[in-house]
Design a protein around this nucleic acid. Sequence first.
RNA 1: AGGGGCGUCGUCAAGCGGUAAGACACAUGGUUUUGGUCCAUGCAUUCGGGGGUUCGAAUCCUCCCGCCCCUGCCA
Length: 587
Amino acid sequence: MAKPDHTQNTSPDDESKEKGLDFIRTIIAKDNESGKHGGKVATRFPPEPNGYLHIGHAKSICLNFGIAGEHEKGTCNLRFDDTNPTKEDVEYVDSIMEDVRWMGFGWNELHYASDYFEQLYEFAVELIKAGKAYVCDLSPEEIRAYRGTLKEPGKNSPYRDRTPEENLDLFQRMRAGEFEDGSRVLRAKIDMAAPNLILRDPTLYRIRRAHHHRTGDKWLIYPMYDFTHCLSDAIEGITHSICTLEFENNRALYDWVLDNVSAPCHPQQIEFARLNLSHTVLSKRKLIQLVEKGLVNGWSDPRMPTISGLRRRGYPPEALRNFCDRIGVAKRDSMVDMALLEFCVREHLNEVAPRVMGVLNPLKVVITNYPEGESEELDCPLHPTDPSQGSRMLPFSGELYIEREDFMEDPPKKFFRLSPGKEVRLRYAYFITCQEVIKDENGEVVELRCTYDPATKGGDAPDGRKVKATLHWVSARHACTSEVRLYEHLFTQENPNDVEEGKDFTDYINPDSLKVLKDCKVEPSLANAGPGYQCQFERMGYFCVDSVDPDTGLVIFNRTVTLRDQWAKIQKSQQPQPKKNNKKKKK
RNA sequence: AGGGGCGUCGUCAAGCGGUAAGACACAUGGUUUUGGUCCAUGCAUUCGGGGGUUCGAAUCCUCCCGCCCCUGCCA
């Protein structure tokens, strides 16, 4: 009887293995199978509130909250790792909570490591009493010198053999404020010859007279990450403590602390590779630099890989979550192509974004045979495949704007938009034919004179004749003027961290990463669109409302992402050819 | 006396001794009132390299090579 049960228990796992469980979920599945935690799965997302969250954190959020959501008894806490008051601020805790919620996740419990300061202190006392921690009077420089190097062992601190009584007295006086900042630290007594440098008597507590954003001036000593993190996990009953690869060496200390103190449980630390994304940077240090040097307009600049930046850019949380699913979780250093993120954004927006028309670089078109001063309203669907989105009425008249790049006086092969004598369709409206090109004194095209075919109303010719292109347009008289901001990759290099000698990652900032277009013409249905409104400008890309100028009512759009563009590819492939021919000729 | 990790398509990534999933990218066709979407097709004779074990190796053993992390009173 036991055997069939066993088979039944393992078969769902086999199914999930076919779906490709990542190595962390595999570990958790095995733990559940063995009953290690009684079916409980407790994770946590533990940011330090010293900066804004970015897409790399999104990966961790999706992992930790995602795993919790996959299990009946799964929980995920949000815990602020706020042990360094000199770097942290409430501004960051607020933004972090907002970002996690926006990502679509809710935490079971909200905690601050600083809430555990008293308990942590008691655990430190335990270590001291057991002779496993000591107060060290060495200066930071001396500690470094005593630590040894990668290849040579360190040497013991002269204070290493103080008695537990003396250490306890000193530690209490550290807390009481009897000593200068930096004059003493509490250290774990482990092994100054340990090949893992983390274990060479690591610092557990330092004296720091700094105002903490939560505990105020109550504490003068603050615990270090390695001491705090494992114990916070244990206090919360975390089962699987998931972190990034650079903490792999720290795991030995994580385990040492929990093994040498009366911790309520011993969570398992598991490390995965952090996300690297092409054409951007994801290190907090570098992001701060971009903000502080004014190279971008703050943390939520739409070019930033921060969650707040991506949100303002118009990237939907669904797309971010899909992206995190697709990139997988492993231990190998990798660089994910930004194209995958953009694909996920398009994939979601394609389904949900209403289609409207906006002309970014307007070129005036006069329909010479359209009744002077007249106009009409066309009923146009908002989505090509989702009729539930309904439609809006779009005004048409004898003076229109089309996209400047949709006209070429002397078109190359494969250009099938508008050019002299050619007929195209105006989306949902009429076929028009270009009869005349009007230029200014500099020879620049300023207006097109076209005729329309009244029989093609709605966009179909009763005689069955075809056109090769459909253009977007906007009625000049009815159009709203608006500002559109076009974004491209922040960096020209795939990996901006890979710098040539004498250069800095900021040298690779893309000068075209932001282009502001001030005289765009959008259809009148957009007049009342508010911040966050998201749509597709047909043929141009996905856009969202950034803000509305309170004085003028001017609507400002951000381009979220372009549409895939085959014409652009054709153009690119046509351009390099003459160069190749030249080279061949030279040879 | 160094230690800890990691090497599978351009980029991610499955695979866990039985003869290389999938996704993005790229390419080519088809459909189309968005050069969008959608659909179809192609895209690693080979898994960092050399030996070995085996009927059989990306998977096991062995040596070598390469990359990442660690010498904060940061996290």
